[in-house]
Design a protein around this nucleic acid. Structure first.
Lengths: 204, 204, 204, 204
DNA sequence: GATGAATGAGACTTCATTCAT
DNA sequence: CATGAATGAAGTCTCATTCAT
């Protein structure tokens, strides 16, 4: 666990995680070797084991970091959002405005791969489900409930259902466009998804 | 004599593919060893190489087989469907009625994993994209166009956009429920997705 | 051992040996698989084991056959040779007139490879040395002795020494030109070797 | 620290090459396994791949090393030789005085085997031919030309022809005595070869 | 702390040989 | 007899992890 007391160590750790992400993005978790990460991060094989006790753990910590960053980024964007509607619109906007770079595609694949891998290891699965429910779903739930309370959203919608629909669509679209390279279609699809969902939840 | 009927060989091949699917489903492609497949299929290590020249090729042929089966199954269900609306409804019904067994989850993971892996190997990516566009998108396109022609669906909708939305949502939902074990939510989510999409395309 | 009684079997055996020779020539003994030979001879894997009980044995029998053929060929050429000098000259002529085809190079390599391999297996080594001494050396010895007796060759030369020099030079040159593709140099070298050796043994 | 001196690594490399040579000598290239080499060199299976990226490459580098050593040894012997005649005599002496140990026989077989194997792989063949022509032939050519210039050797002899004859005879004799265990005959044969060749080139 | 040489289990693949048909 | 599917031992090579310096 990062000790902020030692700034140097923390920066080293970040740098290792970043290198790992880069490598996993390019070759996938299994095909990435510790040597790849070492080469990319310009450190030594031994050092990496001072920070993470195994490749598995490095993977897990990386993904935890990424989730944290995702929400930090979202919250950053939410600074000027008050209403639930504003938040929803801003969220869609964030995704809609993504440019489909090779780097982005790599990132998505790492996430998706992790999601699938996690399903195969009981301990990982629990971590993942917990994260999904406590963070992703919960996050969206709160927005929905806020919207329901304020009268922006229909009273009769089930927050949980909408939340899970939201993330499923997001992931479905990202999954597709992590392979398909069609920027324009991606944007239209997101626009359409936004309309469908907003239409479904807004009180007229 | 071991000069054996084509039928016998075909059945052997199927059995190997099935074993591979089982193993890939349980442990993922990379973590599955040829020994796993051999053990599962109760043959010998050498034999598998009489049928497939590498683990890679086995993987590819397996996925090709699965795609073929998917469409065979869909077409089977479509036997009594005339109108585009019937077809769309039937398609949703097929997915909606799936029971989320462990086996199904394995299957989905294999598909998703393949989709992601394929993105990392140029030759596989071409095969995948081709399959996606020529089969999945094309298949849906035809239904949409039929519906537009017959007046069932709105004239102004873009077939291609709807098709890609359709498959993205399907994949997104399947991806989620290949990890999340909540049958009820899955069904509701599918119902809702059906409404949204049908609402979007139906005239009136 | 070939039973001439069954002509068919004998021809089959020859065909297998020939195929083996072809394959060994192209890829070398170790890199040639039984499948290669089977493919080349258009028979079946099982059949080959009816004729030779192992790859080793096939190899050995092939080389035995080749030695036999070599001497048959030499004797064929010797039909009209009476004197020792004529025989020596004819022998040199045979080698000198060889055209350095790819096929010839293959053949030489097989022989050389066998010679080296044999040194590494006691039983083979005995067979090889026996063959070398009883056939190659003995053959040359007899010519030399004939020449000495008839006064063609110097009385003081040691037949055994000349014989072993003769075959060493032959093998050395063949070895080189099984790799080096220079027809002209080969011929000159043989001419020169002939002169040196004849000069050494002829009585003026 | 295992960050180790270049010298250490070089010695390790030499030791691996030496082990490989020993094993190739005993069993031949194809029959030698990496495990054999590892066992002989008392290291671990993985380590060898830190130094050579494949068995093939190890082989090639070994042979390159050996050629280098051969010429270093020859040049060592040449320190006190001025005239072309002295050099030729010294060269013959070197070969003549070799004692036909089992080790020497192994060494020769490795060289001969490599020569033959190389003929079967285009890239190796080019390396071999280049080495043969640029080093072996060239080396001898220079001596001959020196001798012609100084008047020791006949003006009319073709340096290239003599050179290739020289090496062919050397190789032929070595090849034979890598199998035939007759020290005495070997020496006589070399003596005789020396006389023949010197007789051929010396200006009386 | 940092380094990277060393380890060795285990992966994929090949192939001589067998044997049921 | 002939066939070629089946076998499995054994080969090459990889790579996460350790540890002496």
């Amino acid at each position: 666990m990062p000790k902020v007391s030692d700034d140097y160590k923390e920066r080293k750790r970040e740098s290792l995680l970043e290198s790992a992400l880069k490598c996993f993005g390019e070759k996938g978790f299994h095909s990435t070797t510790m040597d790849d990460i070492v080469a990319y991060s310009k450190t030594s094989k031994g050092l990496i084991y001072n920070y993470f006790k195994s490749k598995e753990e490095l993977y897990l910590e990386l993904m935890q970091e990424r989730t944290k960053l995702t929400f930090e980024r979202i919250n950053e964007h939410f600074k000027n959002c008050e209403t639930a509607t504003e938040k929803m619109r801003e969220l869609f906007k964030m995704y809609r405005e993504i440019t489909l770079t090779e780097e982005w595609r790599h990132l998505i694949r790492v996430h998706m791969e992790f999601w699938i891998n996690s399903a195969r290891h009981e301990n990982l699965q629990n971590i993942m489900l917990d994260r999904y429910k406590k963070q992703y779903l919960q996050f969206m739930n709160e927005i929905i409930e806020q919207g329901k309370k304020s009268g922006e959203f229909k009273k009769e919608i089930q927050a949980e259902l909408v939340s899970s629909i939201f993330w499923a669509y997001i992931d479905g679209i990202c999954l597709h466009y992590s392979v398909v390279e069609e920027d324009e279609l991606y944007k239209q699809q997101f626009k359409q998804t936004e309309e469908m969902i907003m239409n479904y939840i807004l009180t007229k």
